[in-house]
Protein backbone atom coordinates (compact mmCIF):
# COMPACT_ATOMS: atom_id res chain seq x y z
CA UNK A 1 0.00 0.00 0.00
CA UNK A 2 1.50 3.32 -1.03
CA UNK A 3 1.90 5.94 1.63
CA UNK A 4 0.78 9.10 -0.16
CA UNK A 5 1.77 12.47 1.27
CA UNK A 6 -0.28 15.48 0.28
CA UNK A 7 1.51 18.55 -1.08
CA UNK A 8 0.52 22.14 -0.44
CA UNK A 9 -1.07 24.44 -3.04
CA UNK A 10 2.37 25.93 -3.63
CA UNK A 11 3.63 22.40 -4.36
CA UNK A 12 5.63 22.17 -1.15
CA UNK A 13 6.07 19.23 1.19
CA UNK A 14 5.77 21.70 4.06
CA UNK A 15 3.76 24.90 4.17
CA UNK A 16 5.56 27.99 2.91
CA UNK A 17 6.46 30.69 5.43
CA UNK A 18 7.72 34.13 4.29
CA UNK A 19 8.95 36.77 6.70
CA UNK A 20 9.05 40.45 5.93
CA UNK A 21 9.77 43.54 7.94
CA UNK A 22 7.09 43.12 10.63
CA UNK A 23 4.86 40.70 8.70
CA UNK A 24 4.72 36.91 8.32
CA UNK A 25 2.83 35.22 5.50
CA UNK A 26 2.10 31.55 6.20
CA UNK A 27 0.63 29.04 3.80
CA UNK A 28 -2.20 27.18 5.57
CA UNK A 29 -3.14 23.86 3.96
CA UNK A 30 -4.98 21.01 5.67
CA UNK A 31 -8.33 22.61 6.20
CA UNK A 32 -11.52 20.73 5.36
CA UNK A 33 -13.79 23.07 3.45
CA UNK A 34 -17.41 22.82 2.36
CA UNK A 35 -19.99 25.29 1.18
CA UNK A 36 -23.43 25.12 2.72
CA UNK A 37 -26.49 26.55 0.92
CA UNK A 38 -29.92 26.49 2.56
CA UNK A 39 -32.74 25.33 0.31
CA UNK A 40 -35.67 27.58 -0.46
CA UNK A 41 -38.62 27.02 1.87
CA UNK A 42 -36.60 24.93 4.37
CA UNK A 43 -34.20 27.70 5.51
CA UNK A 44 -35.08 27.64 9.20
CA UNK A 45 -34.96 23.86 9.49
CA UNK A 46 -31.73 23.67 7.49
CA UNK A 47 -30.08 26.31 9.65
CA UNK A 48 -31.08 24.49 12.87
CA UNK A 49 -29.76 21.16 11.60
CA UNK A 50 -26.43 22.66 10.49
CA UNK A 51 -25.97 24.63 13.69
CA UNK A 52 -26.67 21.51 15.75
CA UNK A 53 -23.94 19.58 13.95
CA UNK A 54 -21.39 22.39 13.87
CA UNK A 55 -21.99 23.67 17.39
CA UNK A 56 -22.05 27.32 16.34
CA UNK A 57 -24.56 29.90 15.12
CA UNK A 58 -24.25 30.49 11.37
CA UNK A 59 -23.03 34.09 11.14
CA UNK A 60 -24.84 37.10 9.69
CA UNK A 61 -23.82 39.07 6.55
CA UNK A 62 -20.09 39.78 6.50
CA UNK A 63 -19.28 37.83 9.65
CA UNK A 64 -17.06 34.88 10.58
CA UNK A 65 -17.82 32.55 13.52
CA UNK A 66 -15.65 29.89 15.10
CA UNK A 67 -16.42 27.44 17.91
CA UNK A 68 -14.65 24.22 18.82
CA UNK A 69 -13.31 22.54 15.70
CA UNK A 70 -15.50 24.33 13.17
CA UNK A 71 -15.62 27.79 11.62
CA UNK A 72 -18.13 29.39 9.26
CA UNK A 73 -17.79 32.47 7.01
CA UNK A 74 -20.79 34.22 5.45
CA UNK A 75 -20.45 33.54 1.71
CA UNK A 76 -23.70 34.72 0.09
CA UNK A 77 -27.36 34.93 1.07
CA UNK A 78 -28.15 31.69 2.94
CA UNK A 79 -24.67 30.35 2.11
CA UNK A 80 -21.61 29.81 4.27
CA UNK A 81 -18.10 28.47 3.81
CA UNK A 82 -17.55 25.90 6.57
CA UNK A 83 -14.06 24.89 7.62
CA UNK A 84 -12.30 22.62 10.09
CA UNK A 85 -8.76 21.41 10.62
CA UNK A 86 -8.29 18.18 8.75
CA UNK A 87 -7.00 15.41 11.08
CA UNK A 88 -10.46 14.22 12.25
CA UNK A 89 -12.43 16.17 9.64
CA UNK A 90 -11.42 14.69 6.28
CA UNK A 91 -15.00 13.63 5.74
CA UNK A 92 -16.53 16.84 7.04
CA UNK A 93 -18.59 17.56 3.92
CA UNK A 94 -20.20 14.10 4.06
CA UNK A 95 -21.05 14.46 7.73
CA UNK A 96 -22.51 17.90 7.10
CA UNK A 97 -24.48 16.66 4.09
CA UNK A 98 -25.95 13.86 6.22
CA UNK A 99 -26.86 16.30 8.98
CA UNK A 100 -28.77 18.64 6.61
CA UNK A 101 -30.14 16.12 4.15
CA UNK A 102 -33.03 17.54 2.12
CA UNK A 103 -32.81 20.89 3.88
CA UNK A 104 -29.60 22.31 2.43
CA UNK A 105 -27.02 21.60 -0.26
CA UNK A 106 -23.41 20.88 0.65
CA UNK A 107 -20.50 21.12 -1.81
CA UNK A 108 -17.12 19.67 -0.97
CA UNK A 109 -14.51 22.44 -1.32
CA UNK A 110 -11.43 20.95 0.38
CA UNK A 111 -8.38 21.40 -1.88
CA UNK A 112 -10.30 23.79 -4.12
CA UNK A 113 -8.84 26.73 -2.24
CA UNK A 114 -5.45 27.90 -1.06
CA UNK A 115 -5.08 29.93 2.13
CA UNK A 116 -2.43 32.38 3.32
CA UNK A 117 -2.49 33.83 6.83
CA UNK A 118 -1.01 37.28 7.32
CA UNK A 119 0.19 38.25 10.77
CA UNK A 120 1.76 41.58 11.67
CA UNK A 121 1.70 44.80 9.66
CA UNK A 122 -1.04 43.79 7.21
CA UNK A 123 -2.53 47.14 6.21
CA UNK A 124 -0.03 48.11 3.50
CA UNK A 125 -0.41 44.76 1.73
CA UNK A 126 -4.18 45.01 1.42
CA UNK A 127 -4.09 48.66 0.41
CA UNK A 128 -1.96 47.74 -2.57
CA UNK A 129 -3.98 44.70 -3.59
CA UNK A 130 -7.62 45.25 -2.85
CA UNK A 131 -10.34 47.84 -2.74
CA UNK A 132 -11.98 46.13 0.24
CA UNK A 133 -12.79 48.40 3.15
CA UNK A 134 -10.30 46.92 5.59
CA UNK A 135 -10.92 49.50 8.31
CA UNK A 136 -14.54 48.38 8.48
CA UNK A 137 -13.62 44.75 9.12
CA UNK A 138 -13.85 43.91 12.83
CA UNK A 139 -12.48 40.70 14.34
CA UNK A 140 -14.83 37.89 13.37
CA UNK A 141 -15.69 39.26 9.93
CA UNK A 142 -15.32 37.80 6.43
CA UNK A 143 -15.73 39.32 3.01
CA UNK A 144 -15.30 38.22 -0.60
CA UNK A 145 -13.42 40.69 -2.75
CA UNK A 146 -10.93 41.14 -5.55
CA UNK A 147 -7.30 40.87 -4.59
CA UNK A 148 -5.01 41.67 -7.56
CA UNK A 149 -7.69 40.55 -10.04
CA UNK A 150 -8.32 37.29 -8.09
CA UNK A 151 -11.62 36.40 -6.40
CA UNK A 152 -10.75 35.85 -2.75
CA UNK A 153 -12.23 35.46 0.73
CA UNK A 154 -10.69 37.66 3.41
CA UNK A 155 -11.24 36.72 7.06
CA UNK A 156 -10.32 39.12 9.85
CA UNK A 157 -9.14 37.64 13.15
CA UNK A 158 -7.53 40.81 14.54
CA UNK A 159 -8.04 44.20 12.95
CA UNK A 160 -4.91 45.37 11.12
CA UNK A 161 -2.79 42.44 12.33
CA UNK A 162 -4.23 38.99 11.60
CA UNK A 163 -6.06 37.96 8.44
CA UNK A 164 -6.60 34.87 6.34
CA UNK A 165 -6.81 35.17 2.55
CA UNK A 166 -8.40 32.31 0.64
CA UNK A 167 -8.13 32.13 -3.14
CA UNK A 168 -8.71 29.58 -5.89
CA UNK A 169 -6.15 26.81 -5.48
CA UNK A 170 -4.99 26.93 -9.11
CA UNK A 171 -4.03 30.58 -8.57
CA UNK A 172 -1.93 29.82 -5.47
CA UNK A 173 1.27 30.87 -7.20
CA UNK A 174 -0.23 34.11 -8.52
CA UNK A 175 -1.84 34.97 -5.19
CA UNK A 176 1.32 34.25 -3.25
CA UNK A 177 3.35 36.31 -5.71
CA UNK A 178 0.92 39.21 -5.34
CA UNK A 179 1.05 39.08 -1.52
CA UNK A 180 4.83 38.80 -1.53
CA UNK A 181 5.31 41.67 -3.96
CA UNK A 182 2.93 43.92 -2.03
CA UNK A 183 4.61 43.05 1.28
CA UNK A 184 8.04 43.84 -0.11
CA UNK A 185 6.76 47.09 -1.52
CA UNK A 186 4.96 48.13 1.66
CA UNK A 187 7.47 47.11 4.31
Amino acid sequence: MLDLQSITPLWGETPRVDRFNGLTITEVPNRALASLALRRGREDEGRKAAEAMLGLALPAVGKHAAAGSYAASWFAQDQWLISAEIPEHELMSYQLADAVEGLASVTEQTDGWCRFDLEGACRGVFERLSGVNLAAMEPGSATRALLEHLSCVIICFETASHYAVLGPRSYAGSLHHALETAARSAL
Binding site: V61, N133, A136, A145, L146
Partner: peptide, 11 residues
Protein backbone atom coordinates in the same frame (compact mmCIF):
# COMPACT_ATOMS: atom_id res chain seq x y z
CA UNK B 1 -28.00 46.25 -0.25
CA UNK B 2 -26.34 43.62 1.99
CA UNK B 3 -22.63 44.36 1.74
CA UNK B 4 -22.45 48.14 1.52
CA UNK B 5 -20.40 50.20 -0.97
CA UNK B 6 -18.32 48.07 -3.34
CA UNK B 7 -15.95 48.94 -6.18
CA UNK B 8 -17.23 48.58 -9.75
CA UNK B 9 -14.45 46.08 -10.52
CA UNK B 10 -16.15 43.44 -8.36
CA UNK B 11 -19.12 43.45 -10.75
Amino acid sequence: PLLGPRDRQEF
